[in-house]
Amino acid sequence: MIKLENVSKIYKGDVVALRNVTCEIQKGEFVFLVGPSGSGKSTFMRLLNKEETPDSGVIYVAGKDIGRLSGWRVPFLRRNIGCIFQDFKLLDNRTVAQNVAFALEVIGRPRHVISNQVPAILELVGLSPKAHNYPEELSGGEQQRVSIARAFVNRPLILLADEPTGNLDPATSVGIMKLLDRINKTGTTVVMATHDRGIVDTMRKRVIELDQGNLARDQARGVYE
């Protein structure tokens, strides 16, 4: 599903974000990306949905070399990749249902599809009763659920989660991880960057550790360190 071959990314001022990283993630895998701040986790994620381009190396997503993708096809790549963030990135002026529907509207899904899929996904994340609430009326955990619903409503092949529990208390984090696990079980590949030792140690999924841009460890059923 995802393959990196000798991928390097160096920012201005010789700041090395990734150096010669090679790894492969299979369809349906759940992978934790760990490492200290500045180790290259976010760059790794941003390269996968082509928000960044590597300075060298090749990246394949769903069998396609995304380096060869022309600009106008990038949106189509992104429709196959859902993204979740630490700060949720919800639109304050839209309700929960509208936030989720937004992801379908802007890619031109027909209205009847939207009106079917949005309630279904809100049911999945347990937010049906709050469909008409605004983000500011929700707790942090609920907001992250909305964010997950928006990322997953289009049934992407891959879900990229950048520190999704970074702003949440441990109990809420467990709920979010259960939800991501459920989504993973539907066949969606999940790549999650995290600093949360407890979660990684509890879930015992594959762990890829980055250190100063180098791939330091790639361990099946791994722990945080």
């Binding site: 949905n49 600009g71 106008w72 949106p75 189509f76 790549l77 992104r78 429709r79 196959n80 859902g82 993204c83 990135k89 639109l91 937004f102 992801a103 802007v106 890619i107 928006r150 990322a151 289009n154």
Partner: peptide, 10 residues
């Protein structure tokens, strides 16, 4: 930002 992330065309 959200539009870009969910794959809205340019």
């Amino acid at each position: 930002e959200v539009m870009r992330l969910v794959g809205a065309s340019n």
